[in-house]
Amino acid sequence: MGSFRAKDADRDRFIELIEAAYVDGQLGAADRELRVGRALSAETLDELETLTRDLQLPPGYVPPAAPSTSPSTSPSRSRRATGVLVGLVMFVVLVVAGVTGIVALAMFAVPGENDSATSQGVETAPAPIESEEIVAEVPEAPSFAMSAPQVRAFVRAYEEEFGTLEAFEVGFYPERVGVQVPVRGSRPRMERWSWTGEWRQDTTATTVRGPYQRVDLGAVDVGRLFDNIAAARRTLEVEKGRFTHALLIRWGDEPTELNIYVGNEFSESGYLSSTPAGEIMRRHPYES
């Protein structure tokens, strides 16, 4: 399984199991935070399996079905086969067209006519110059990069799109923002959306699992967030650590936290916890 790359849907699937195990009493708060952080930065399915291998399925918990990775049903293989077939057909068409063109030239060429016209001083008109083809420029798709101006733009876009600054969880990543958006109604429901400069809905409405509480995006001090990202890289003792993500979350009766995670290519990680306003509450450096 380790040879398959993990997708966002895979990470969400394993995070739901970790959170359900936390609610079931199998994990403590610190262990839950650590596993969720590593699941969000996992690059392969084998890494995700390792994080949940020792967990029991909580009573009543039904894990979402894993997507099929069978090579026999791989769409890329069928696309390759179709491409080969199309290539062979095009080759045959080109060969037939070439032969037909040669035969046509041989049939319609009349020896001497062009030579006599030239000897009498009659010049043939030059071929018209074709106008340059005008190619319409395709505008580039919107993109997101983790920076203070783009985070502020995301907050404005969120309020415009959903009419609120409340969410159940917000994850800031280097190239996107993932949000659990509350769904209006009498029961706690949420939808997962992604922002990459434009909105994409990742899931339909589902039940809010665990004791999630709503957080306020308007309370985030964006400037202090980036100050704390720099501090996390300096102080969490992760060799050549890079920012992997930050989570704005409120769990049960605990206050809202903005947790900043740093990791490296060796799956070593640590995180710094702050208030939305940027006050550092605790650090969890990497422990070998």
Rank of each mutant, 00 (worst) to 15 (best):
V99R: 13
V122C: 05
V99L: 15
V99F: 13
A136S: 13
I129A: 12
E132T: 13
G98A: 12
S116M: 01
P149R: 00
I102V: 11
S143D: 02
E137T: 01
E132D: 12
A106I: 09
A109M: 07
E140S: 11
A106L: 07
M146K: 03
V95N: 02
V110H: 14
A125Q: 12
A125V: 13
A125Y: 06
Q150V: 04
D115N: 00
E123S: 09
Q120G: 13
E132Q: 12
E140W: 06
E113Y: 12
F144T: 02
G98L: 14
G101F: 13
G101A: 12
V151N: 00
S143P: 09
D115L: 02
A117C: 09
A117Q: 10
I134K: 14
N114D: 08
S131R: 14
T100V: 05
P139R: 03
I134E: 09
I129R: 09
L105V: 10
F108H: 13
M146F: 15
V122Y: 08
L94T: 07
T118K: 07
P142L: 00
A125K: 06
A148G: 07
P139W: 11
E133K: 06
A136G: 08
E123C: 02
L94G: 02
M107S: 11
P149D: 13
E140M: 06
V138A: 04
V93L: 15
P126A: 05
V103Y: 11
F108S: 06
T100W: 03
T118Q: 08
E130G: 13
S147A: 11
A97E: 12
G98S: 14
V103W: 08
E123K: 03
V95L: 11
L94W: 05
A136F: 10
V151Q: 01
A148I: 03
P126K: 00
V122N: 11
A125D: 08
G112V: 05
V110F: 02
P139Q: 05
A127D: 04
V110P: 00
G121A: 02
V93M: 15
S119G: 10
E133Q: 08
I129N: 04
G112L: 09
G101Y: 14
G101C: 12
A148V: 05
V96M: 15
A109T: 15
S116G: 09
P139Y: 07
E132L: 14
P126V: 04
A141G: 09
P126Y: 01
E113V: 15
G101V: 10
G121I: 01
A106C: 11
M107H: 03
A97L: 12
G101D: 13
G98K: 07
S119Q: 05
V95E: 11
I134F: 12
E123T: 07
Q120S: 12
S143H: 07
G101H: 14
A145S: 10
L94C: 07
I129E: 14
E140N: 08
P111T: 13
V93P: 05
F144K: 01
N114R: 05
A145L: 03
P142E: 01
A104Y: 12
P128M: 07
L105G: 14
D115A: 08
P149K: 03
N114W: 02
A104M: 15
E123M: 09
E113W: 13
T100M: 10
I134Q: 14
V95Y: 07
